[in-house]
């Protein structure tokens, strides 16, 4: 008998607590800074062009082979406005195939691709599977419009010696210098 009364007491105290429900879609839970959504490209606002040069490293390393990248000569380089000789011409990511493994972000030499940590990359319901193939404009949109305010761009730990991204090496040296 006492056990049942204790159970009822616990149940009542649980009922009086604030519920944990976040009423989607009117309210949305705040996604963590490191939330790993689908990959999206970053826009360089200083030079008004994408960071991506079309080097195809990400496409080569993609385990599911969901990316198609082509590059072209950068007209802004000829005009002297940008240090990038080549710029991306076409970029397709098939979100239906992407498994969000983060490898493209890890291998990118130009820090041009990043995992989208906003709700937009989670709300991807479409009526037709073809609409999940994102082209360059769709991929640049979150960054260009400012929706992607704070992407997670920490350099990945020096997992692969020999070709760690340059930024990570510089930061390591800075930390080492600071410790001395």
């Amino acid at each position: 008998m006492l056990g049942i009364l204790r159970a009822l007491g616990t149940v009542v105290s649980a009922a009086l607590r604030k519920p944990a429900t976040v009423q989607y879609p009117t309210e949305k839970k705040q996604l963590p800074h490191r939330a790993r959504g689908f990959p999206t490209l970053l826009w360089d606002f200083e030079r008004d062009e994408p960071f991506c040069t079309g080097c195809q490293v990400c496409a080569r390393y993609c385990p599911t082979d969901c990316m198609t990248v082509t590059m072209r000569d950068n007209p802004k380089y000829a005009e002297g406005k940008s240090p990038r000789r080549k710029i991306v011409d076409k970029f397709f990511i098939d979100y239906a195939r992407c498994m969000r493994c983060d490898i493209c972000v890890e291998v990118c030499n130009f820090d041009a691709i990043v995992m989208d940590n906003t709700w937009r990359s989670v709300e991807l319901s479409r009526y037709d599977r073809q609409e999940l193939v994102m082209d360059l404009d769709a991929l640049l949109k979150p960054s260009r419009t400012g929706q992607l305010k704070d992407p997670f761009r920490d350099a990945m730990g020096v997992a692969h010696h020999g070709w760690a991204p340059r930024k990570a090496e510089e930061e390591k040296e800075k930390v080492a210098a600071a410790e001395e």
Partner: peptide, 15 residues
């Protein structure tokens, strides 16, 4: 855990 403890551990039916 405390909730589960309160509801289940001494609950006669559960026992």
């Amino acid at each position: 855990i405390d909730d589960i403890d309160g509801i289940m551990t001494e609950n006669e039916v559960f026992l």
